[in-house]
Write a protein that binds this DNA or RNA. Structure first.
Lengths: 183, 183
DNA sequence: AAGTTAATCAAACATTTGTTTAACTTTATT
DNA sequence: AATAAAGTTAAACAAATGTTTGATTAACTT
């Protein structure tokens, strides 16, 4: 709390004054940061101009971009889920995941119905692979860099690494679902 | 530390007496639990009787089994990497990951050389997807269960859920690398 | 301008947490 | 059996941590 107050340039008592407790502060943080993802999914599913593949790729690239611009926050998400301490955050994440699950399930079903996707996959496990790849990419930056002898800088992460991950995501999605590239 | 001592049925001072500090206790835990993975990789790469696909599938199924039998520990691994606090654990994990990276790189190269694998993938990003899927499957148990209306029990997790994840892993590996099923 | 409410702060408070101490018991050595 | 070493413990210690208090200042309201 002291670190947060210092970083925010405020007195520590202000956090309790405005948020009530550390737990509630975390809750607000989650609600605020997660709303962008929900809005993006909502917008995509309501857009009738998009093909199934476009919907899918738009969702994935949006997801990647949000993680790319909120690296620390997504590490907090990981830590929160792994430690399982803040119950209201866990509940919040569960609801959120269910929303994403329904979205991806409907996109996959649309693709199977139209014949765009040739390979059957469990939608929940598909999300698990996508989310897992993105989250793990946050933890494997240094592995990638040292393996290929590159120096880790903010620019490299932003302009090179995350672009490679994005491309990789596209590739594996195409291979997993079995559809042809259109770009 | 008090919780650990209680769970172990020992006095809290014993931890300092035998391990020195909380950090060093964690280090020992990591060294101990991770040695199985290293041994498995070593054994597989030294076994000349196996085909490339067999090596790959043996490594993945071994990995899955270790996670399945040490669920809490792998959540600790996730939390440790996400919070980035214990530097010696981070260093240890980095060395370990590099070992795995080299292993998978050589397996993939072997597959490309023999023509067994048709699709090119970056080996480090391939590991990222595999590890990510497995780790995320630890966090998505409840999503899977509620999405399909199943009750979460230890038996269900062990006998049903992780078997589904294992199957899924096999499927996506096959699709990502582009090789044919042999079973 | 007086009075009320809201915002801010330094300090105090009460737990929690990792570590150490000092006394003791048990085990091993001669 | 006597002595030393190793193992074990309850209690104390010091630092960290989330929260509250009570005083002070700033911002509205009439």
């Amino acid at each position: 709390m002291r670190d947060i107050a210092k970083a925010a340039g405020i007195n520590i008592a202000m956090i309790s004054y405005y948020f009530g407790s550390k737990e509630k502060l975390m809750e607000e943080l989650f609600k605020m940061r997660m709303s962008a993802g929900l809005a993006s999914v909502k917008e995509i599913s309501e857009n009738t101009m998009l093909t199934t593949v476009e919907k899918l790729e738009k969702a994935l690239s949006g997801y990647m971009d949000r993680v790319k611009h909120n690296k620390s926050f997504y590490k907090v998400i990981l830590a929160e889920q792994a430690t399982n301490k803040n119950k209201s955050v866990i509940r919040f994440m569960s609801r959120l995941k269910e929303t994403y699950a329904k979205f991806f399930e409907s996109v996959l079903n649309e693709g199977y119905a139209s014949g765009a996707f040739k390979n059957r996959v469990d939608p929940v496990l598909f999300i698990t692979t996508i989310t897992g790849t993105i989250m793990q990419s946050l933890l494997n930056k240094h592995l990638y860099a040292t393996h290929y002898g590159v120096k880790v800088t903010e620019e490299w992460i932003r302009d090179v690494y995350f672009e490679k991950v994005k491309e990789h995501l596209k590739t594996i999605t195409r291979n997993i679902l079995g559809y042809e590239s259109n770009s």
